[in-house]
Write a protein that binds this DNA or RNA. Structure first.
Lengths: 184, 184
DNA sequence: GTTTGCCCATACGGTTGCGTATGGAGATAG
DNA sequence: CTATCTCCATACGCAACCGTATGGGCAAAC
């Protein structure tokens, strides 16, 4: 029972609260109680609440960078297979943290910058996959945007009560539609 | 200078604050200052803050009911034309209020119920449009979900800085893809 | 011109949370 | 053994809100 804490524990607690209830829930006195200490501890490790929020955001950035993309790339298939991997991975993922970060971004410029960066990265990757299916650049871009928006919508609407384990019929229909190239 | 206020003014101010900065911004003392009165006024018209939030939600419900759907139906085209109308209307709309309500719904069950109701309604309508294009029920459902999710994603990501007035090339590509029926 | 009902101001107490100040406990170095 | 460095508790002041209590102004009704 190492009673002594470090920044790490506070950041982890912050991430946990963030994922569970949003930024407004990551308050120092609340986290302190959750960690079994008092504010005295917090203000030794951090300048103020905002410093914690920055640290939490940085932690998420680091985490979101070796992202879904890396997982997809590990599976090493062609573009179509990778697209499929991407979908299944994303649809099975939790997404609460991302969702709260996005909600946070609506009011905080730092969070906004962070998530916009990630969004661009992911969109570019999606686009590259569609390009790998011999779509024209503009067709690839259009499909990438549609897919990305749909995924965001999926998670912001209702987090999948049951992260449906089996790819549904609807999923297959959508996937085929997105992948079909009429020019080849 | 009608200094006297009614519930209406408070609800309008609440909706305004909600759309601009989210539920957490609709606070009685803040709205009071905005309206040029004090809390004394508020607590005469409403039991408490929650009563105002309920009223705001009800106002949104009433407003969201004669919805985009009605606007689309007024234009009186075939299914394809209606789908197009729907897209252009939605993409030109503001969406901030809906977005904040959705964010609100993540933490409040009443707001959740409200938006889920609207979501079902809109999804069903979308589905009916696709059915009108001779898709099978499951194909129609799949497309409806995809489209709806994409629209939600569109608005939650970044509110369209420029509500792009002209339907872009990407839009045309997506629209044709969604509408293409290989069986007919 | 009172009375009554509607609308609001003022004042107060309570809660939650931030940030600071100060002191102490425990380990570690000297 | 004591001095120092880490980490934390306690206590305080401050601010933003909520909700209540109370009294007053003003217009319509009588």
């Amino acid at each position: 029972m190492s009673k002594r804490l470090g920044k790490r524990e506070w950041i982890d607690a912050g991430l946990k609260a963030l994922a569970a209830q949003g930024v407004d829930a990551v308050r120092v006195e609340v986290l302190a109680k959750a960690l079994g200490v008092t504010k005295g501890s917090f203000y030794w490790h951090f300048k103020n609440r905002n410093a914690l929020l920055e640290a939490v955001l940085d932690a998420w950035k680091a985490r979101a960078t070796n992202d879904v993309i890396a997982q997809v790339e590990e599976r090493n298939g062609d573009a179509r297979a990778r697209l499929r991997s991407l979908f299944t991975i994303v649809l099975e993922s939790d997404g609460r943290l991302d969702r709260e970060i996005r909600a946070w971004a609506a009011k905080d410029s730092a969070a906004l910058a962070a998530i916009e960066h990630i969004d661009r990265r992911r969109l570019a990757y999606l686009e590259s996959l569609f390009l790998g299916l011999d779509f024209t650049p503009i067709e690839a871009a259009a499909r990438a945007r549609l897919v990305y928006h749909a995924l965001i919508g999926q998670f912001t609407m209702g987090l999948p009560a049951k992260p449906q384990s089996r790819p549904s019929k609807q999923f297959e229909i959508i996937f085929e539609m997105l992948v079909r190239n009429n020019k080849t």
